[in-house]
Design a binder for these strands. Structure first.
Length: 286
DNA sequence: CCCCAGTCCTGCGGGC
DNA sequence: TGCCCGCAGGACTGGG
């Protein structure tokens, strides 16, 4: 579930590791299937021990810990991964740990309940090649309106499905796709190539507004309680969701529609049929 | 180009 | 009380 706002909150939360020297790389004993760590732990250690953390960045839903030697440790939390300074929620799902010296934070932990996430050490050149190959589109917070339209405009896919395409733009997942379309007043099934210029403008604004708002509330912690920030505190944006997981409840925007749930590309989509009508009400001519 | 189903993985809650 | 099953969905893959 960590999407752009949650990963950005993680990034801000671990800023205190910058300047730290890596003095340990551990994979704590765990009876569960190990998560993907590459290269092997031995090679990983050889390359990162005694290196310093130069910066902590974010690319879409990935957290990038840059080292002082043109390499980076890339955390990809996928559904249930957390990057923490504090002790994790439990030790059964603690998957990976960096020991640090010379900074207040003595360790950085990667915790992942379902274990779908990964930790990869990459040369920065390798990472950039990966971007250049188009595996990851422009970051959803950086993308311009023109770029957004360029990336998605020709597609016949439903706009909701297209927003999840990380090759088109990076950072939006299932939860925020529904929230963004609601704020933009767009029906989730509209094909991208049918959106008008005005609708692209609304979509672009809504992407920025919803993601910024979610970051301000430190992301969304759903009913399962999994998501935590770097200090093991839950997010608060779930209290401000307009449609996500609010099926059959009154729409908080118009107060008259009822939030509907549908399935697109095997994923739940939530929307208000009144705020997000397939055919927009046209402004009455004079 | 794009859609769909299957894969990975664990925990939770519904149904019986 | 327990067990099975479906569901959650991010990234990826193979088939159509």
């Amino acid at each position: 579930m960590p999407e752009l706002p949650e990963v950005e909150t993680m990034r801000r939360g671990i800023a205190a590791i910058v300047g730290g020297r890596i003095i340990a790389v551990q994979r704590p004993p765990c009876r569960l299937k190990p998560i993907a760590v590459s290269p092997s732990l031995r090679t990983f250690r050889n390359r990162v021990l005694q290196r310093r953390v130069a910066a902590v960045e974010r690319c879409g839903k990935r957290l990038v810990v840059r080292l002082d030697d043109r390499a980076a440790i890339v955390f990809e939390p996928r559904m249930t991964g957390l990057v923490l300074l504090e002790d994790p929620p439990d030790h059964d799902h603690l998957r990976f740990r960096l020991g640090l010296a010379d900074v207040a934070a003595s360790q950085l932990s990667y915790w992942d309940r379902r274990g779908l996430g990964s930790v990869r050490l990459m040369a920065v050149a390798e990472f950039q090649t990966w971007f250049a190959a188009g595996r990851l589109g422009p970051d959803a917070l950086q993308i311009s309106r023109a770029e957004l339209r360029q990336q998605l405009g020709a597609s016949r896919r439903a706009i909701k499905v297209a927003l999840l395409d990380q090759q088109a733009l990076a950072g939006i997942g299932n939860l925020y796709a529904s929230e963004i379309l609601h704020v933009a007043g767009l029906h989730p099934t509209i094909p991208c190539n049918r959106l008008t210029g005005r609708q692209w403008q609304r979509l672009h604004t809504a992407i920025r507004d919803v993601l910024d708002e979610a970051i301000r509330y430190e992301g969304s912690t759903l009913a399962d309680g999994t998501y935590r920030n770097a200090l093991n505190h839950p997010g608060r944006y779930q209290q401000h969701h307009r449609v996500y997981a609010r099926e059959a409840q009154p729409c908080p925007s118009c107060g008259r529609g009822t939030v509907q749930r549908m399935v697109q590309a095997q994923r739940a989509t939530f929307f208000c049929p009144r705020c997000q009508a397939r055919r927009e009400r046209r402004i009455a001519p004079l």
